[in-house]
Amino acid sequence: MQKSLLHTAFGVLALSLATAASAQVKPEDQIKFRQAGYSFMSWNMGKIKANLEGEYNAKQVEAAANAIAAIAGSGMGALYGPGTEKDIGNLKTRVKPEFFQQMQNVGKLATDFNAAAANLAKVAASGDKAAVQKAFGATGETCKACHDKYRME
């Protein structure tokens, strides 16, 4: 339980520090950058899925997992600053307003995702397809947990 509280506290602290850094980036750029990051992670998740369902190329999986982990750990929380909770001009966002009101829970979800992505990269380096399948599922579950709660369709 203490480990969970520590992870949650770390996630909230990281998001708080990231918010301070976001003041240097215009809100519309924050939205564009976070969408680009999530799109790139999604593309890499798709590459891993294709490898798990077809011919397994351990090097491709490792590269994709490393890209996901790098973006997940890059401070994406800095891209959720003031003004990014709504559309800006023709730039649309799908983040729900509740995201900005429930930072402790968001911090926990972010910490869970970062840990799962880091684990996926670690497991992918082993080349063990079965272990990657399990870590890939766990990473996907952490994505879904946030999407289900804080992303509009």
Rank of each mutant, 00 (worst) to 15 (best):
M1R: 08
L5C: 13
H7A: 15
T8C: 08
A9Q: 07
A9V: 02
V12F: 10
L13Y: 10
L15H: 10
S16H: 11
Q24A: 15
Q24P: 03
E28S: 03
K32R: 08
K32N: 00
R34N: 00
G37H: 04
F40E: 07
F40W: 12
F40Q: 11
W43Q: 13
G46D: 03
K47F: 11
L52E: 10
G54D: 14
N57Q: 07
K59L: 11
K59F: 11
Q60T: 12
V61G: 03
V61I: 11
A65K: 06
A70F: 05
A70M: 07
I71Q: 00
A72M: 04
G73M: 05
M76V: 08
Y80Q: 04
G83L: 02
K86V: 02
G89T: 00
N90C: 00
V95G: 02
K96A: 11
K96M: 13
P97F: 01
F99R: 10
Q101T: 13
Q102G: 06
M103F: 08
M103P: 05
G107M: 01
G107V: 00
G107S: 02
L109F: 06
A110G: 14
F113V: 06
N114R: 10
A115F: 14
A116P: 07
A121K: 12
K122S: 13
A124R: 06
A124S: 13
S126I: 05
S126L: 05
G127T: 02
D128P: 09
D128T: 12
K129T: 08
A130F: 03
A130W: 03
A131M: 06
A131G: 09
V132D: 04
K134S: 15
A135C: 04
F136Q: 07
G137V: 01
A138N: 15
T139V: 08
G140D: 08
G140T: 01
G140Q: 03
C143W: 02
K144L: 09
K144N: 09
A145D: 04
C146T: 15
K149V: 14
R151A: 09
E153Q: 13
